[in-house]
Amino acid sequence: MVEPNAVLGVVSVALGMVLSPGPNMMYLVSRSISQGRRAGIISLSGVVAGFLVYLTATNLGLAALFAAVPQVLTAIRLAGAGYLMWFAWKTIRPGGASVFTVRDVPHDPPPRLFAMGLMTNLLNPKIAILYVSVIPQFVDIRAGNVLAQGVVLGLFQIAVAATVNFSIVLAAGSVAGFLAHRPAWLRAQRIAMGSMLGALAVMLAFSRSASF
Rank of each mutant, 00 (worst) to 15 (best):
L19E: 11
S20M: 14
S20Q: 07
S20F: 12
S20P: 07
P21Y: 04
G22D: 09
G22T: 06
P23F: 06
N24W: 01
N24E: 11
N24V: 02
M25E: 00
M25V: 14
M26K: 10
M26C: 11
Y27Q: 13
Y27C: 10
Y27M: 15
L28N: 12
V29D: 08
V29N: 08
S32K: 01
S32L: 04
S34R: 08
S34L: 08
G36D: 01
R37Q: 15
R37M: 14
R37L: 12
R38N: 06
R38L: 06
R38T: 07
A39V: 10
A39W: 10
G40S: 03
I41D: 01
I41Y: 03
I42L: 13
I42P: 00
I42C: 05
S43P: 02
S43D: 01
S43Y: 01
S43H: 02
L44Q: 02
L44H: 03
L44S: 06
S45M: 14
S45R: 05
S45Y: 06
G46D: 07
G46N: 06
V47S: 01
V47H: 00
V48W: 05
A49P: 08
A49R: 09
G50N: 05
G50T: 10
F51L: 12
F51Q: 09
F51E: 11
F51H: 15
L52P: 04
L52F: 13
L52N: 08
V53Q: 11
V53F: 11
V53L: 13
Y54C: 03
Y54L: 14
Y54V: 01
L55N: 04
T56R: 00
T56Y: 08
T58K: 02
T58Q: 13
T58H: 10
T58C: 08
T58M: 15
N59K: 12
N59G: 10
N59Q: 15
L60C: 09
L60V: 10
G61K: 00
G61A: 08
L62M: 07
A63G: 15
A64G: 07
A64D: 12
L65K: 06
L65A: 13
L65G: 02
F66P: 01
A68V: 08
A68I: 07
